[in-house]
Nucleic acid binder design. Structure first.
Length: 452
RNA sequence: GGUCCCAUCGUCUAACGGCUAGGACGUCAGGUUUUCAUCCUGGAAAUCGGGGUUCGAUUCCCCGUGGGAUCACCA
């Protein structure tokens, strides 16, 4: 399996200074998929050296988010607990003449003299091979002797990053293309320290619909917000994987395990990709359609608002029969509550009281009195068992509907049962409500017409 | 502004010099034994521009244009 003898190690290095961004989740995913596809290790390294901005809550959110998405790591590090590993490397670099101490006026606190450590820049051109973009060349001269440590025991990002990647045996650095400009200076540090150069792969960025960098002002960008809306983790990893990568086939729906076996860095796109919420919704719908009836029922029960649960005819059994109807009308779990609050499913839990006007089938020029049709329907309803399938109901009513005219019979029936202009078909409604309740509702509609 | 990256339907993408530029989302139209939804079928929709190289460019090269990233004693 390891054709080159060396075990693949990838890492994701988030800094806990903000919510877990979907772009960060995607970077983590690509690292995870690549490592697992190669039978290697995926490690998470929390870059929390910025004491001012790092919080335990954000770190917790990152861990929870990755776990929720189904990713697991082979090692977890926290830079704040590794401060002692950097100093020897820093001292070595100084001893080797690759870096030097420099007393300067602090930029952050003017007037305060500090002793920073600067890298002695050899001022050369760096060329590195990017797995996604090919050869990238940059002149490091304009970087100057850049600062690698604020003090001998306070190393900066680039230095820490390079040392950690080396110490942790990271073989492939897969990260956002916003890190391309950082690469030459990190390579300079590697060379100063005598480290082997890892393989680089810079991912295209996630963009907002206006092609600018995806940020808060474009809508939800934190993973938590999607989780709360009820997006399925498998749908999110699936969508994120396809945003910038393609498997080379027309398959679009994948489980996480399938992604692991199909993933290939060669299929990664170069250009930035717009985060399209509509396609994510479609993807989520695809994943929801693969849920078992039991799984979906649990989701529905969980998302149904209390106002619905308080309705007079609300029962678990009724909800279970309604679930398939809901499934074909929503794309995300959040839609369930949304639709329910709009009253779309009230008919299942409370008897409606449609006005006489609504009971009339108006597609036809000759509007006829729905009363006799409903009376006949009620009569038929009384002959079928309460627990019936939609087909049972259809078989019992179809001949009469055909004889009179389908719209003339089915429209008033459907409105009598649902109280709405638009709803599932009447046979399905009868199945959900039972023929006894259906009978009552039809009778009630007859009363409405009579008293109008 | 300097440096770097990128460029196929509105969006995500396929076609790694060779059929009529394919698929998906969205959209539009028709059908699915009343409405809505689902589902099915069909349609419209793209190679940024200009030069090369070649028998032949979406594809390779150059220039332009456009978009993006980055220029810390943050990460």
């Amino acid at each position: 399996m390891f054709t080159h003898g060396k075990k693949v190690v990838t890492r994701m290095a988030p800094s806990p200074t903000g919510h877990l961004h979907v772009g960060t989740a995607r970077t983590a995913l690509y690292n995870y998929l690549y490592a697992k596809n190669k039978g290697g290790d995926f490690i998470v390294r929390c870059e929390d050296t910025d004491k001012e901005r790092s919080t335990a809550a954000f770190e917790e959110e990152i861990i929870a988010g990755l776990t929720w998405l189904g990713m697991s790591w082979d090692a977890y590090y926290r830079q704040s607990e590794r401060s002692e590993v950097y100093r020897p490397y820093l001292e070595q670099a100084i001893a080797d003449g690759a870096a030097y101490r420099s007393k300067e006026d602090s930029t952050r606190e003017p007037g305060t003299e500090i002793e920073v450590v600067r890298l002695k820049n050899p001022n050369k051109t760096i060329t590195f091979e990017d797995e996604i973009r090919g050869e990238v060349t940059m002149d490091t001269t304009d970087l100057g002797d850049f600062v690698i440590a604020r003090a001998i025991d306070d190393p900066l990002f680039h230095f820490v990053n390079v040392v950690d990647d080396h110490e942790m045996g990271v073989t492939h650095i897969i990260r956002g293309e916003d890190h391309i400009p950082n690469t030459p200076r990190q390579i300079l540090i590697q060379e100063a320290l005598g480290f082997e150069r890892p393989t680089y792969a810079h991912l295209p960025l996630l963009l907002a619909p206006d092609r600018s960098k995806l940020s808060k002002r474009h809508g939800p960008v934190s993973l938590t917000q999607y989780a709360e809306k009820g997006y399925m983790p498998g749908a999110i990893t699936n969508y994120l994987a396809l945003l910038g990568w393609n498997p080379g086939t027309d398959q679009e729906v994948f489980t996480l395990d399938e992604l692991v076996s199909e993933f290939d860095i060669a299929g990664v796109q170069k250009g930035g990709a717009i985060f399209d919420i509509e396609k994510l919704r479609w993807m989520n719908r695809e994943h929801m359609s693969r849920l078992s009836d039991d799984e979906f029922r649990i989701m529905v029960t969980d998302r149904m608002p209390d106002t619905q649960k308080a309705l007079p005819q609300y029962t678990g059994a009724r909800l279970e029969k309604l679930a398939p109807i809901i499934r074909e009308r929503v794309s995300v779990a959040y839609d369930i509550a949304q639709e329910a609050e709009k009253g779309e499913y009230d008919f299942a839990f409370a008897a409606p009281k449609p006005p006489a006007e609504m009971l009339m089938w108006k597609k036809d020029e000759h509007v006829r009195d729905p009363l006799p049709r409903l009376q006949k329907v009620a009569e038929i309803l009384s002959t079928i068992p309460d627990a019936c399938t939609a087909d049972d109901a259809k078989n019992a009513l179809w001949n009469y509907a055909e004889e009179i005219g389908k719209g003339e019979v089915l429209w008033p029936l459907r409105v009598a049962l649902s109280g709405r202009e638009r709803s599932p078909d009447p046979f399905t409604l009868i199945h959900i409500l039972g023929s006894a309740e259906s009978y009552k509702r039809v009778q009630s509609a007859c009363d409405t017409i009579l008293s109008a």
